[in-house]
Simulated assay, not measured.
Amino acid sequence: MTPLHHIGNFIRELVIQIPLWCVRILFLGTLIAVFLWVLRLPRETTTPENATHWYQNLKIWACLALAIQIVIYSIF
């Protein structure tokens, strides 16, 4: 075995010790943080200059996609 195998096995043993519920909370927390960040973006940065309709605001669709991901990953 090469030294990289020993390093890889050491890292694998460290990662195995982390409970899956902690990983799930960290992952969902990251999605929620991005969701909140997107909500706080100003409308001017998420809408094209010549936008005339509400559905042209990209913040709406980004929040919808993030909300769906949060629901899916919190259920499964």
Rank of each mutant, 00 (worst) to 15 (best):
S74T: 15
V23Y: 02
L66G: 05
T2F: 03
F76I: 02
W61T: 05
G29Y: 11
M1A: 14
W21Y: 06
Q56E: 15
I68N: 02
R12P: 05
K59A: 07
H6P: 01
V34W: 02
F35Y: 15
R40K: 13
L64N: 02
F76K: 01
R40H: 13
F35M: 06
Q69F: 00
L28H: 09
Q17V: 08
W37Y: 15
L64F: 14
A33C: 06
P48A: 14
T30P: 03
H6I: 05
A67T: 13
T52K: 02
P48W: 12
C22S: 11
W37D: 13
N57Y: 05
T46K: 03
I70A: 09
T2C: 07
M1N: 13
A67N: 00
P48R: 09
T46I: 01
N57S: 10
W21A: 00
C63P: 03
I68Y: 04
L28Y: 06
I7R: 11
R24V: 01
Q69N: 08
P3M: 04
G8Y: 11
I25A: 15
L64Q: 07
R24H: 10
L31A: 07
I60P: 03
A51V: 00
V23Q: 06
E44Y: 00
I75G: 04
I70E: 07
A65D: 12
V15W: 02
T45V: 12
F76M: 05
F35T: 07
V38R: 00
L36M: 11
T45G: 03
I68C: 05
L39N: 12
G29L: 09
L41V: 06
P42Q: 09
F27R: 05
L28V: 10
R43I: 12
M1E: 10
R12H: 12
I32V: 15
A65K: 04
E13C: 04
A67I: 02
G29H: 08
Q69C: 01
F10N: 05
T45R: 00
W21G: 01
N9I: 01
L28A: 06
R43S: 14
E49W: 09
W61D: 09
T47Y: 02
L41N: 07
A62K: 00
P48N: 13
M1S: 14
N9M: 09
E13L: 04
M1L: 04
I11E: 08
R40C: 13
L28K: 03
P42S: 10
C63V: 14
Y55N: 12
L4N: 12
I25F: 11
P42M: 02
L41E: 12
F10E: 10
L4T: 10
H53W: 01
L39S: 14
E13S: 13
E49R: 00
I11D: 03
R24S: 14
E13I: 02
V71R: 04
L64Y: 11
T52I: 08
S74H: 07
T46V: 12
I18V: 15
H53F: 08
L14Y: 07
Y55F: 15
Y55L: 06
V71L: 09
L36S: 13
W54P: 03
V15D: 11
P19C: 11
T2L: 00
I18R: 04
I11S: 01
I32C: 07
E44K: 07
E49G: 03
Y55Q: 00
E13N: 14
V15N: 05
I18Q: 03
Q56W: 01
